[in-house]
Structure formats: structure tokens, C-alpha cells
Computed example of a mutant assay.
Amino acid sequence: MTSAVPSAVATALEDVDPELRAALLACWTDVSNAGGAVGFVPPVTADDVAPALDALLTRVAQGRERVVVLRVDGELAGWAVLSLSVSPLRRHWATVLRVQVHPARQGQGLGRALMTGVHDAARDLGLEMLHLTVRGGYGLEGFYAGLGYREFGRMPGAIRVAPGDDREEVHLFVRL
């Protein structure tokens, strides 16, 4: 799958080798420490993130999730996860998780390239719809609206980033 950014290529993977695992871990740690809303609150170390990554990679190995990696000139620039439903009633859609572009690569249109790759991978899997959530207060709703996502709900106080600092979880979906 090739994106709109000429040297950027997004690929869905069913398995991850140790070299890619190390790159995913470094990216996730760097994005988290740059303030990215990808499951952690800074500061974090690779040791903090590794258990979550390894659990994710177990689900990938089980066929329950796919990692979509974005490479620029062969180097990991970002990644996301397609989490597939195990329910036969929900196999026509998936949830997108952990969308991230490395901080050194942000501002180059790579978020859009990554999401285009996610959409392509979802279509290749026969999916008809995607769901994702964003952490309120980051203004990400506009980015996703530009990709066709529509908001369908907000859960106040769903995300606690610190004592006394609760954020909304905003639910979005797109039909492919």
C-alpha cells in the first residue's frame, strides 16, 4: 500500500520480528514522552511500554490484531493497530488503536499517510467500517474529520491523565 507521501509506504503485518519490535517500542516510548495520547502519560521508559507492546504482539500472533507500519525510506516513521472483533456480529468492522507518528517525523503529512494505509488494510480484510477514540483536549477530532470520520459520542471523565485531570474519550467512526 503506497500513500500520498511519495517515499512513505504503509504495510499491514501479521507478525513482527525482533528488529521491528525494537523500532515499535522506541517509537511508542518517544511518542508517549512527547505527549502523544497513545496509552501512557509521560515520562515513560521502554521498560514501562514493553509489557503493553508484548501483549499487543501476542494478539497480533493470534490473528486478533494487525500492525500497520509506516516506513519512510525504509525506516519506521509511525504505526497503528487494527483490532479485529472476535464476535461474529462485529466482524465487518474493527477498532483502530495506538495511531502514532514519531515526533521527529510529525508535520510532514505522515499521519494522513498512515491512516490511508490503515484504511487500505481494513478494506483488504473486507472490513466496512472503523471505530477509534481520541483523548479530549488534543483537538484530534478535526484531523480525523478530514479523513471522513464522524463523532458519535463522548464519555466525560473516561481518561484520567493525573489526579484531578480527567479527559473525555471521543468516539469516532468512518464507513470505508
Rank of each mutant, 00 (worst) to 15 (best):
A23L: 02
A94Y: 12
P43R: 04
E65P: 09
E65I: 06
V49T: 01
G126T: 07
D15S: 13
W79F: 13
T45I: 09
A52L: 08
M115P: 10
D124M: 07
S7P: 04
G126V: 09
L84C: 14
P18S: 10
L25E: 03
V96D: 13
E14C: 07
V60I: 06
V60E: 03
C27L: 11
D124N: 11
H92Y: 09
E19T: 12
T29R: 09
V81E: 03
A52S: 15
W28D: 02
V86D: 15
V41K: 11
S7G: 06
Q106N: 01
G78P: 02
V68A: 00
Q108K: 14
V96L: 11
L76R: 06
T116I: 04
A46T: 13
V118I: 08
E19Y: 07
G109P: 07
R66P: 11
V101W: 03
E65M: 13
G109I: 03
R90D: 14
T58L: 12
R112I: 04
T58I: 14
R64V: 09
G109C: 11
D15V: 10
G107F: 05
V69T: 12
W28E: 03
P43K: 04
V81Y: 07
T11H: 04
L76D: 05
P51Y: 14
R71I: 00
R21T: 14
V16N: 10
H92I: 13
Q100G: 09
V81K: 05
L56E: 07
G107Q: 04
T29C: 10
A80P: 05
V44M: 02
G109K: 05
A26M: 09
H92A: 12
T58C: 13
L13M: 08
T95Y: 13
Q108G: 12
V69S: 02
R90C: 15
L70E: 01
L110Q: 01
E14F: 12
L76N: 01
A46R: 14
L20C: 08
R66A: 06
P42T: 05
L13N: 04
C27I: 04
V68F: 01
L20Q: 02
E19S: 09
G36L: 02
V67N: 07
S7Q: 15
L114T: 02
D120L: 11
P43E: 12
N33E: 01
P18H: 12
G39C: 02
T95L: 14
A104C: 10
E19R: 14
R105Y: 13
F40D: 06
L76W: 02
A77M: 03
L70R: 00
A34F: 04
S7I: 10
D54M: 04
G117N: 09
L24S: 00
V49Y: 09
A122W: 03
A26R: 09
P42C: 06
A22W: 03
Q108W: 07
L84V: 07
H92S: 13
W28K: 08
R59N: 15
A8T: 00
S85W: 14
D30Y: 05
P42G: 07
G111Q: 07
D48H: 13
R90N: 11
A46V: 10
L57Q: 07
E75D: 11
L70T: 00
D73Y: 04
L125A: 06
G111W: 10
R123T: 08
V69D: 01
L24K: 05
V9E: 03
P18I: 11
A26H: 10
Q100W: 08
L110K: 02
D73R: 14
L70P: 00
